[in-house]
Each structure stands twice: as structure tokens, then as C-alpha cells.
Design a protein around this nucleic acid. Structure first.
Lengths: 155, 155
DNA sequence: AGATAATAAATCGTATACGATATATATGAC
DNA sequence: GTCATATATATCGTATACGATTTATTATCT
């Protein structure tokens, strides 16, 4: 293995745990698993829940607006929203002023489900094993990283 | 916005950016996009690349061993490995001592592809906008978080 | 040894995720 | 007003991702 001869300043080792991207990738998988018991009784998935969070914060958004906040394309959101609609958690209707757009609204049932998951969130926060300062710091650092990556891939 | 009136010890606000899970989720999407230009000319995906990294580090692993390192099930890995095999990057063959297991080996072509992406990784590291200390710290904090989450969901 | 249990992959169904394309509507040029 | 362009969503094909099940092989129990 010639991975030992690494550059002095930064770990350029080729081991999986040495990749920041893999740390993010696998932590994402771990979060999905942690949330699963909360979701499965409701028939929800993590992206569906994130969509409800976005709608709970601001209702009556278009597919594009949701896509910007969730970093998802219409090709992902359209079927997801149709499932949320079928479950009775959101409504979808064309905007009468601009028939190209579809307005998404959260229903009372959707808000109830949001609240239910939100109340169970303490268990997830416990499971992170992070004290409040570490939680907030990690969150802030990640968002900075994410925005750096997005800016770089847009240029 | 009533997110300002947050609890004193921990942000229990319901806004999307206040969720650590969403920070991880969206950073993962951002990493995928950052890597895309490196991968698409090779016809690779991120999980496929991660698999090559794991095999470059340790060859001749079983599907289960790879699954443990990559946090993936055989239902995900089997088709992925078949695609890597079709691309000529790995070989798959039953272990003669235990015919239940399938041994995965990286090919010379697979190592070449690994090297090629690995060389282009400087651009990704640049794109993170992190100095070496911040990079390593974030990586370590994430892996701790991930292992905490996994431990909690196993209990 | 032979029935049973355990294990490793693979298969199937469903839900993201995205690029490319299609469709419908709106906007702009003239 | 008409045509070209732009925009918003939807559709399609491919690749993860996982739970549940299936199949093949190995281990165990008696």
C-alpha cells in the first residue's frame, strides 16, 4: 500500500474513515435508522417528514420553493408530495394566478403528525449523545460546509 | 417567526435549519453534487466509489464485511456490486470454503479508477472550505455522533 | 446420519434521488 | 395577436436504500 506516504499537512489517507464525505454519508444513514421507529408507525419517511417541517414553518409553498429549502428536484418532490397527499398530510392544487405552479398546503392531520414526531424528538437528541453546545456547533459547522460545497459546485 | 423564543438550554425550534439531522441530510446531498463531476466521466456513483475505497484498503472481503464498513445491507450491496463487476472494477466469486459467502476483489482497473478519483480529491477538499484542523475535527465529531446514533438504535 | 436451526446472499416491493425530457402555462418580441 | 422563449411541474430511466422473504449452504442437536 502506498497510502502511507501522505502529505504532511492533511490526512490524505485512503481509508474510509478518513473521508469527511463518508462521515457525512454514514451519519445520514445512522440518522435514518434512529428516526425509523418514530416514523414507521405513521408510515412516514425522513424526506417526507422534512417536507412537513418545511410546510409547518411556512405553508402554501410551491414545489420549487420546497425544492430550494429541501435541496430536492421536482422529479423527487412530485411523487413524494403525491404520497403525502394520499396519506392526507398535505393538499396539492394549481395556483389559479399561475397555472404552472402547484401550491402545497399542510393539513390539520399533517400538523398533528408533525407535532407527534416533534414531541418524540427528545429521544433522538438524547441518542446523539451531544450536549447543547456541541449540538449547535456541529449543526452550524455542517451548514457552513454544505453551503461551501453548494457554492463550489455551482461555479 | 416564533423561532426566536427558543428554550434556554437547547434549540427546540421547529425550523428546518434547526434540525441537526437536516444539516447532515442536506450536507450529504451537497457532497454528492460536489463529487458528481469527478464521477460521471467514469460512470461511478458515490456509494460505488465508497465501495472501491473499502476494497482498496482491504481486498477480498465478503458482502457482509463490506456491508458492515459501509453500513449497507446485502439488498443494497448485491446489485451495486453486480454493477461494479459489469464495469470491470471488481470480481465476485463464491468462497470455496463456505459457499454461502461471496468474495469481492478489486481489479487493476478498479484500482486505477480509485487512484484517478483520489487524485482529484484536492478539489473537493478545497470546496469544503475547511482548513485541515477543522476538517479533521468535523470528521471526528461526526463519526462520534454516528456511532452514538447507531448504538442507540441497536439497544 | 438426519432433521433442525442458523447464516449469507439474493430477490422483491417501495421510496428516495437525479438527469433528461415532456407538457403545460406564462412572458416577451414584434 | 402570434410566435418564440422561458418557466413550473411532471414523467421516465437508472441507482441507491431498506424491510421482508427466499434460496442455498453450513452448523448444531440428538
Amino acid at each position: 500500500m502506498k497510502n502511507q506516504e501522505k502529505s504532511p499537512q492533511l490526512e490524505l489517507a485512503a481509508s474510509l474513515p478518513d473521508f469527511l464525505c463518508f462521515a457525512v454519508y454514514s451519519t445520514n444513514l445512522a440518522f435514518h435508522r434512529a428516526y425509523k421507529p418514530l416514523f414507521e408507525e405513521l408510515g412516514l419517511t425522513y424526506p417526507q417528514y422534512a417536507t412537513l417541517v418545511a410546510l409547518n414553518e411556512e405553508d402554501d409553498q410551491t414545489v420549487s420553493q420546497l425544492g430550494e429549502k429541501l435541496l430536492l428536484e421536482s422529479s423527487t418532490l412530485t411523487p413524494l408530495l403525491k404520497r403525502l397527499e394520499a396519506a392526507g398530510y398535505v393538499t396539492r392544487q394549481r395556483d389559479s394566478r399561475d397555472e404552472r405552479q402547484v401550491r402545497i398546503n399542510i393539513t390539520a392531520q399533517g400538523r398533528a403528525v408533525f407535532d407527534q414526531v416533534f414531541c418524540g424528538r427528545d429521544a433522538i437528541i438524547d441518542a446523539t449523545g451531544l450536549d447543547p453546545e456541541a449540538y449547535v456547533r456541529l449543526q452550524r459547522d455542517l451548514i457552513k460546509l454544505r453551503d461551501n460545497l453548494l457554492a463550489a459546485s455551482r461555479k
